[in-house]
Design a protein around this nucleic acid. Structure first.
Lengths: 337, 337
DNA sequence: CTCACTACTGTAAGCGCTACCACTAAGCGT
DNA sequence: ACGCTTAGTGGTAGCGCTTACAGTAGTGAG
């Protein structure tokens, strides 16, 4: 026996299909009695509206796309958790588009735009070139960006420049003058525009304090624990000339740095202070001082914005800056004498 | 101007809509000339088939659901990467259902089953009770399970019992007799059935070698780095009575254990050997010996199975065991004298 | 030259809903 | 009492595709 259709419910409840549709969707006027009868009939038959038919007829699909460059990295998966939770609460489906770096970039930007099965999309750390932007806008899909600028669209992010500055100032305030930075890949890669902002914040804070920025102390570690571990081991190898503090653009890198320092026999924060960004759970065990960027809430907030947008027509795109909060633990301390 | 429809392409190419549909989908006979003309017309108009209309008419949606208990944990996000990549290659969309523990369990099992918008589903570490199983089967959605048993469905997983045994045997082979185990939550939680299998493997290997299993050395750490760190710190606190080796059911727990050991002034593997499971990238920097369970490939393999199933009608459900491979690094060594 | 087949193409009947329109029956201010 | 609004309902035309089904040609075998 085939799955029940709207018609079957209508027959059983003794009303028209139009009334069933209205009763079930909650739109339009339906008498309490009719509503009750419809619900009962639907219940008995185990009826659920056909997603495709409903979407085709109404033009709305209650389906939102999420585009991100990776799903197996902390920041992205945490934002994704937030987005997924918020969408579930709102009764929306989530279609996932994973770039895997840039591997499926073209495919996603072509495919997912065109099939027009999405009501809207959330793009995490997505950096588009003008042609891609044009493509997106002409498809008419409302878009909210998370964790990076996205021309023409509303965005949610932290103030990366400010975060870089505050992290560095925290170290300077503790008396450090020799401060290195461990960031993500610079240009070249198209996602991760924020990496350079945090680096810029570091440079600004150093300049403001009249401190020199050693070019060799500006490192790139791809946002991973292991890469940071290697970089830090090199950086800290020479006892005669090494920084007393390191600001890492992510907690994973910061933790890798701490491990490297220990492997070299350095104490943290005795010989070296380390500060990160994220509030990654791994930071707890490392006693890592960090700036919490509330990644999960960035995700939920993005959904809120999107739903407001879908409900209320088009508003001006706006850029919402999330506050980042200090979590001071034991990895930062006074500079060694 | 509205997006072009099939009809528009047909008009422009001078053929019927049926021919356009056949030419574009590749099904049925179409002359090379007609095909070329259709493709040209579609190209010029920027035509893409409407996903919903196509699904409604054909009954197939080229959309596969992925159900998992968390997305912000390594194993799940890695499997998800594999699934997402394989689906992208096959031209399928991916709808994500995140339980968040058990928070949205009911919602997902009800909602996603019913809307009947999925061709099939992949369930990662999903443990269903009989009623839920019944519900799923009556919905008629082909299902493949990853990383755990799933009654009635085909599954992909490693042999967790064997993994537990081999990891423990590795330690025994190095002369260890005092071996503790750090696993995930036992019963209670409904996902993570594999945790107890790895624990059982440990117990078996110990028994086979005639070694005692200290109940206090069978710990639960929720699969997280930080929790393992705490547990290990307690476990290793007493110099008079502590294990010389620890088998952790995941690399994150193993890494947390190593950090705890070092914080206590113990050397690895001098005073303590540690072995994990996963081949989590963080293991590299820790020099962690582990058993690679090829999480990503489990994901891609699940998709292969599903697509075979969708193509070839229903086969018998089968359970495919993935081999796990040793990655011996520096965290395991001979037992201290 | 006929028959059987195959290659190709068009016609049109849905797929299962939503939403517009039309209509009736109340309710209500004047 | 009169229009006027509004709640409640049914009829039905699509939404944009896919896919029988049927029909026309062209081909080679008998």
């Amino acid at each position: 026996m085939n799955p029940p259709r709207l018609q079957d419910v209508a027959a059983r409840a003794g009303v028209s299909t139009a009334t069933v549709s209205r009763a079930l969707s909650g739109k339009g006027h339906v008498s309490p009695r009719a509503r009750a009868r419809v619900q009962e009939a639907a219940q008995e038959l185990g009826f659920v509206v056909s997603y495709h038919a409903s979407s085709l007829a109404s033009g709305r699909s209650r389906n939102i796309g999420v585009v991100l460059p990776h799903v197996d990295r902390w920041y992205f998966s945490t934002v994704l958790e937030g987005v997924a939770g918020a969408l579930m609460e709102a009764g929306y489906d989530l279609t996932l588009y994973n770039f895997e770096g840039d591997r499926y970039r073209e495919t996603v930007l072509t495919d997912f735009l065109l099939r027009k099965r999405l009501d809207a999309a959330v793009a995490v750390s997505l950096h588009l070139d003008p042609a891609e932007t044009e493509q997106l806008f002409s498809a008419g899909i409302p878009l909210v960006g998370v964790g990076g600028p996205l021309v023409g669209a509303s965005t949610i992010s932290i103030d990366d420049l400010d975060v870089g500055r505050r992290a560095t100032q925290h170290l300077i305030g503790l008396g450090h003058r020799r401060i290195a930075h461990l960031g993500g890949a610079e240009e070249g890669r198209r996602y991760f525009p924020m990496s350079s902002d945090r680096r810029d914040g570091w440079e600004q804070a150093m300049a403001d304090a009249g401190l020199a920025v050693e070019p060799a102390w500006s490192l790139i570690a791809d946002y991973t624990f292991t890469d940071a571990y290697q970089q830090a081991k090199n950086l800290l190898a020479d006892p005669a000339d090494r920084p007393t503090a390191i600001f890492a653009s992510s907690d994973e890198m910061a933790a890798g740095t701490i491990l490297a320092a220990r492997d070299l026999g350095l104490t943290v924060p005795g010989d070296l202070s380390v500060i990160g960004v994220d509030a990654h759970p791994i930071g707890e065990a490392f006693g890592l001082t960090t700036l919490d960027q509330h990644a999960r809430r960035q995700g939920t907030r993005a959904v809120e914005r999107l739903l407001e947008h879908l409900a209320g027509g088009s508003r001006e795109p706006s850029n919402e800056l999330f506050p980042a909060h200090f979590v001071v633990r034991s990895s930062t301390g006074p500079a060694p004498a």
